[in-house]
């Protein structure tokens, strides 16, 4: 081939930069899931009980469920705009492997929607009277777990990107798949409260993260090819 091609790494960086820039321009897509997370987390004390003892028992679960719902809401912005303006098709036709491009888009999406939630989680944890000794665990498990949620959600979005109304289907596909992350995350927090060793749980979450980083983009790429054509 005579045309000089950029390396995969450069294309990866370009896709990442592009997505971050778009998110910076359309701020509401970044802010909305984040606000949604805050509001859902706020509803639990009102709906269950404002009593600190009770709250501290369920705080970890509440934070995880709110994160899960927020990431589900944020999923909508992952491929949809690109699908509508045709840039997704361009990406499919690009000479670079879709695998790494999908990975770049997922990374950008996590930086925009997952990371803010992780960063603010200790604050919400405090408001839900989560015992202070588990803040660290909560933070680390969310840091390991939210990318998995993004990567799994990406498969669901890629499968349904061509559909008009897909909110419910996306939820039915994505939520059951996120259960292992939810279990490991909440159990790790519980484990800290019991004063037991965390290594096993963190290793499991790390394994889930690595496995989904390597396999989920493969499925997402295949799904995108099916949906776009």
């Amino acid at each position: 081939m005579s045309i000089k091609r950029t390396t995969t790494l450069k294309a990866f960086q370009a896709t990442l930069r592009r997505d971050l820039l778009i998110a910076y321009k359309r701020k509401n897509e970044v802010v909305n899931p984040f606000m949604f997370f805050l509001i859902v987390a706020t509803l639990f004390p009102i709906g269950i009980s404002p009593e600190p003892d009770r709250l501290s028992e369920i705080a970890a679960g509440v934070l995880w469920i709110s994160t899960l719902l927020a990431s589900l809401l944020a999923m909508d912005s992952l491929y949809r705009a690109d699908y509508e303006d045709g840039s997704l098709e361009q990406l499919l036709l690009a000479p670079h492997s879709l695998y790494f491009m999908v990975l770049a888009k997922n990374l950008a999406h996590w930086l925009i929607s997952g990371l803010p939630v992780v960063l603010v989680s200790p604050l919400i944890g405090y408001m839900l009277s989560l015992p202070a000794e588990s803040f660290g665990t909560l933070f680390v498990t969310l840091l390991l777990g939210t990318p998995v949620l993004s990567l799994l959600g990406s498969i669901g979005v890629a499968l349904t990107v061509g559909l008009g109304s897909r909110g419910l289907i996306l939820a039915v596909i994505t939520l059951p798949m996120s259960v292992p992350v939810l279990i490991a995350g909440t159990m790790a927090v519980q484990q800290t409260l019991n004063g037991a060793s965390l290594a096993g749980y963190l290793a499991i979450m790390g394994a889930m993260l690595l496995a989904s980083i390597s396999l989920a983009p493969l499925a997402s790429a295949a799904a995108l090819r099916i949906s776009v054509n």
Binding site: A199, G200, Y201, A203, I204, G206, A207, M208, L210, A211, I213, S214, L215
Partner: peptide
Amino acid sequence: TGLSLAIGLTLFAL
């Protein structure tokens, strides 16, 4: 690489 690391971590966890 990703999968073998994941398997290693799982074995450690078990």
